[in-house]
């Protein structure tokens, strides 16, 4: 039997290096992209810096109340208020808003790229067959690995953090958009077609509305994945709660690390429950 160790090692690492090198030629393009993503980040951060902390807490509690009008989740609202007050008290407020900015920017970009891609996959079996393995790859490759090209293209800071998060967090949005559209019952598609809808009318009036709750579940997952990237992203200079955890690890500061970790958990629960509630709300 052939011993695979005796043949020459395949230069996969080399090829990838060359590919990344080759990509870095397009500095103009990446600079433009950096500015664009940076713009979104700054906009979010500007808003969060502008809103007084008490107002922010009131807004979150109010939105939760409105989104759960029928079920009246007082427990959740109390949790949110206390949780946010704790973050404020621990002096993590700005870090929390930075993390939130990172998550929101990544999710927004995931949505803008992921939904059309998901629609495309739903419309064509060939496109689906091509992208399915790519998505699997994007999601299972250790997220760490994305840091390297991210730095190569975008340097250090929030932008490469967003880039790495988008690659890692986008697949659920794409997947669930595809799934949601494909799950629309054949009879409804036939109904739409038989009355003479254009492809666009069918998409807007039938497929997307009926795929919405599945699609939103994908967005929710993407946000959670983006949040799970914050510590990793902090290694390449994306500021926020992740940085606090990262530093704590470096200084062997268990207490500080735990406090920052707790803040991330609180943020995660708030984002998760809020997006779920908003999703439920839209269903009849």
């Amino acid at each position: 039997m052939l011993n695979l160790m005796t043949i020459t090692k395949l230069p996969i690492a080399n090829w990838m290096d060359h590919f990344v090198d080759w990509l870095t030629q397009f500095t103009g393009f990446f600079n433009g992209l950096t500015n664009f993503i940076g713009g979104i980040i700054n906009a979010f951060q500007w808003v969060f810096d502008l809103i007084p902390i008490w107002l922010f807490i009131v807004i979150i509690a109010g939105v939760t109340y409105l989104a759960n009008r029928d079920t009246k989740k007082w427990g959740l609202i109390i949790f949110e208020v206390l949780g946010l007050l704790l973050i404020w008290n621990l002096d993590f407020w700005r870090d929390m808003t930075q993390t939130l900015t990172l998550v929101l920017t990544s999710s927004l970009i995931s949505l803008v790229i992921g939904v059309p891609l998901g629609i495309w996959m739903a419309k064509s079996d060939i496109v689906q067959a091509i992208f399915k393995p790519i998505l699997d790859f994007m999601q299972t490759m250790p997220a760490f690995v994305y840091l390297i090209p991210a730095v190569a293209f975008f340097g250090i800071g929030m932008v490469p953090g967003v880039f790495a998060s988008v690659i890692f967090a986008m697949p659920p949005t794409v997947r669930m958009t595809n799934l949601g559209i494909r799950q629309v019952p054949t009879e409804l598609i036939e109904a739409s077609d038989s009355y003479g809808s254009t492809e666009w009318q069918k998409l807007i009036k039938v497929q997307l509305p009926l795929a919405k709750s599945t699609l939103m579940a994908g967005v929710n997952q993407s946000m959670m994945l983006a949040l799970s990237m914050v510590v990793i992203a902090s290694m390449i200079g994306a500021m926020g709660l992740g940085t606090r955890v990262y530093f704590a690890v470096g200084r062997n500061d268990a207490g500080g690390g735990f406090a920052a970790g707790l803040a991330i958990v609180i943020l995660a629960i708030i984002i998760d429950r809020l997006t779920q509630a908003l999703n439920r709300q839209r269903k009849h």
Binding site: P185, E187, L188, E190, A191, D193, S194, Y195, G196, S197, T198, K205, V206, P209, L210, H284
Partner: peptide
Amino acid sequence: LREVRRKKMSMVFQNFGLFPN
């Protein structure tokens, strides 16, 4: 064809084919 479907023929389905939303 779309015009024909819009103006000349309408279809009724076994499981009604109503849009739940």
